[in-house]
Design a protein around this nucleic acid. Sequence first.
DNA 1: CCGCGTATTTTGAATAGTCAAAATAAAAGT
DNA 2: ACTTTTATTTTGACTATTCAAAATACGCGG
Lengths: 220, 220
Amino acid sequence: MASITVENYLKHILLLSADGHALVPMGALASALAVVPGTATTMVKALADEGFVEHRPRQGVRLTPGGRRLALSVLRKHRLVETFLVNVLKMDWAEVHAEAEQLEHAISDQVLDRLDALLGRPAADPHGDPIPSRGGKLDSQIYATLATCATGRALRVVRITEQSQEFLQFAEQNGLQPGSALRVHDRNLSAGLVTLKRKGGRPLTLSLAAAGKILVAPEA
Amino acid sequence: MASITVENYLKHILLLSADGHALVPMGALASALAVVPGTATTMVKALADEGFVEHRPRQGVRLTPGGRRLALSVLRKHRLVETFLVNVLKMDWAEVHAEAEQLEHAISDQVLDRLDALLGRPAADPHGDPIPSRGGKLDSQIYATLATCATGRALRVVRITEQSQEFLQFAEQNGLQPGSALRVHDRNLSAGLVTLKRKGGRPLTLSLAAAGKILVAPEA
DNA sequence: CCGCGTATTTTGAATAGTCAAAATAAAAGT
DNA sequence: ACTTTTATTTTGACTATTCAAAATACGCGG
């Protein structure tokens, strides 16, 4: 059985690697895990010995197929647990991340499967992040952000790419949950501001930095 | 934060201590936790340093009020999680113990409270064991067992005092879940056998040892 | 009171994961 | 090319938890 620590390392390598092939630099991994860089190096070498990752010294780490499989199963647990906490226990969208961080290591595949069925086998969690399938497929579509999409078109919020309480709470209070309908009214690059029109709401102005954290898709 | 190991030691001391005042011998604790006796001694001394237990060398351990509080909160988590797994996820009564063993250390008080509400604030788990209240009260009623109760009276199964898969499965297959109605038809101490009549079922014969693990209350 | 068996404690060593700080390699600037 | 900066790795040490095996204390039968 992989320890909680091992599961966390693998999950974060997966999350930082995006295309699943790029090398994740040690520094990035260490800071994601809140350990000093030396610790990450030591641990990554141990993971390499166990066949979970490939370590290119002074360049970074990459998951092996086996490591990826394990990482995806942890991520699946995390996102299904989040979905459960929000949809069934009615917890606040912005605060479930920390809870899931613990539960993802304690839940068995059996329990997870029941939970999945109870939730109706959802494809995405409440933040809009895709949930890996049981078979380990991750539907990673590329979306535009409010900072980059065309103005004027009808859009739908797909996902918030930021885990912090503050930001999620801010998004929620301004009606920017995944699923919300809106359009970009104006974008002023020199001022770094984006103005939105929400369906039946007052206009809202965001900084370009914040807008870049909100993924959107064109309204079907 | 108490580690998972600490939580487990405290929980088992609570479970082995019954009246909450008796000293738990090291050997019993060690075997409940599946560690060698020396390990239990070492750990108990550490727990004593942190104020969770009182250690009487060569006699045993006992929880301090602080240790008891923590132990009860772990036990509450364990039993509410079991209830959730059976009542909501429809898992098998006999297999939830091991699952809860993991989850009890990963679930926050906040999540637990929502779960408790979802379940209707139950007083006992699916095995019939009482669930400690949020305030840390444990309703520990003394029940008779099938090995000791009066014969002929209408009874109801209250609890199975045995965690093993085999036994729970056996009990389930023979209609001996908490709540089942039955009466003791005959008890033969010299042969070590107890014969039951279940409401609308064929008679069933149990060993005295097995009968002693099934707690019953007189039918209201 | 003495020796015996059993439960408990001690001692020494191992493992997993971590940090601090020194050493090193690679990248970047002049 | 030479120096500086920055990222990574190494080294030595520490904590929590565990085991194996040796030492010790306790209660019991004679």
